[in-house]
Write a protein that binds this DNA or RNA. Structure first.
Lengths: 270, 270
DNA sequence: CGTAGCTTTGAGCGGCGTCAAGAGCTGTGG
DNA sequence: CCACAGCTCTTGACGCCGCTCAAAGCTACG
């Protein structure tokens, strides 16, 4: 699952952000040291400053902070091709409490800040792409903010699951089984784990999720999008609407079950 | 109040983002057509695409969307020197429902997208500053997300008022009377107007806000920051911590009452 | 086969929304 | 100068969603 074309998602992402193939290649050449991170471990640790940036090559992660009372607040999900800690390049003195944790087994790569300096000067379109990516993050965060404040628990959970589905598809993973624990969902939707469970129970009763216990498997995506009020357009990287029916990429789509890792991540999580 | 040095906040903002005086001047020369917007009117309208960007020279505004049920969702506040619609330059096909509304009387100026193209090429540090500003927005949105999900209404309102205080000071307004209606606070904190009122009532009883009815006047800023769990560092533009006591710029500070417009804006708001 | 972590289910409660009504302030038109 | 309209602010009663506490069943793994 991990092998084959580890750089494909990164390439397609940057091309959709307006970067030429030559420029992406220049970036790839500097992403040298690859390494693995097991599920539950931190990819970027809080209160630690690096002189390099980290790029997620495969797997899935989340950015989060740990509050005083111990709760983990998830702010966003990261997938193949996403940089984890560019804020530490551009604003090194800020967001020191923000960390990134692997949700499943991941492989990552790093690039020195000094190399980025040179890249930006040499390739203005790459520079523009980074700005675009930041603006996309703003857009996604607005969506999360809206989702967090508005509506019932069912809507919030449904919306979250829809985003996960679409973002996984964007990098070529078509499984309808989401490799995420209910606790992760709780921290991302800002609900208690108990109530997330009750909510999922309802979605199962409505035949939107599979009744197969111990896994989150989406059966009826359209219904899920309807419940969550999900509009996938905010996720499309190139900003060009694909002209679908208002639920983003959630219409049809073939499915290739990738059951490699679905639940029960060993998790050295605290 | 508006006159004198209309560009001062913009200059200081971009200088703190690492732009040289010469580059700011180049930007200023292109910000030509100035105009006024009265309180309650839209500065940027939803579902309208422009070929220019708008910069707020004076006053205060908020970015928002209108939900299906009619509620106004406020995502951020804008002050002097902030650009209102750069997302339409960098991602023209997205966030079409996002609008910007003047909270008080404002003066604005515009710059053509084509001019920005040229500026970015000629002045890479300006380009970098725009990226930095976007990252700052991400940082602020994370704070709002955290604030929206965590804690009680009192904390959320207190946190919001603290941000308003600090951001107004950052552009030289030292008044402790906030020119904002309780309804605006409600839409920004995602609470009902009724409950915001009750919350303010409590803060008044605790001598954190003035009991002077019909205006939000902060008396005890330290207490307010404590209640709201406010850490002003996320607002500092240059990213360099000023080494204060953990409540950002909320320590002391002279006050110059600027009562020009405080409440009871006529408001053609729907 | 025991332990650790995730999931499931129940009981009770409290914060915040909703609905409703009234009062205060401002600007407008007669 | 007064009346009116249209805000915003204020206050009360009531109901519900989601949190907390608590305990038990499942799955994986050493």
């Amino acid at each position: 699952m991990l092998g084959r074309f580890p750089n494909a998602p990164l390439i397609s992402k940057f091309e959709s952000l307006g970067v030429s193939k030559e420029e992406v290649d220049a970036l790839l050449k500097l992403l040298v040291k690859q390494s693995g991170v097991s599920a539950g471990a931190d990819i970027v640790r809080a209160e630690e400053s690096n002189d390099y940036a980290t790029c997620l090559l495969s797997g899935a992660a989340c950015s989060y902070t740990r509050l005083d009372n111990g709760t983990r607040q998830i702010y966003s999900f990261l997938y193949s091709g996403d940089f984890c800690d560019l804020h530490r390049y551009i604003l090194p003195e800020r967001d020191k409490t923000l960390a990134v944790q692997a949700l499943v087994d991941c492989s990552i790569s790093t690039i020195a800040h000094s190399e980025i300096d040179l890249l930006l000067i040499k390739y203005p379109r790459l520079h523009l792409a980074f700005w675009r990516a930041a603006m996309l993050e703003v857009s996604i965060l607005r969506q999360w903010l809206s989702n967090a404040r508005q509506g019932l628990a069912v809507q919030r959970v449904a919306n979250l699951l829809c985003e996960l589905l679409v973002r996984r598809e964007a990098i070529g993973i078509a499984s309808r089984i989401l490799p995420i624990t209910q606790i992760d969902v709780a921290d991302a939707a800002a609900l208690s784990a108990v109530h997330v469970n009750r909510t999922i129970k309802m979605l199962r009763k409505w035949n939107v999720l599979s009744t197969a216990s111990h896994a989150i498997e989406v059966i009826d995506r359209k219904q899920l999008a309807k419940i969550g009020g999900f509009d996938g357009r905010y996720l499309e990287r190139n900003g060009v609407s694909s002209g679908r029916d208002g639920v983003g990429a959630l219409s049809g789509g073939t499915q290739i079950e990738v059951r490699s890792r679905l639940m029960w991540a060993p998790g050295k999580r605290k």
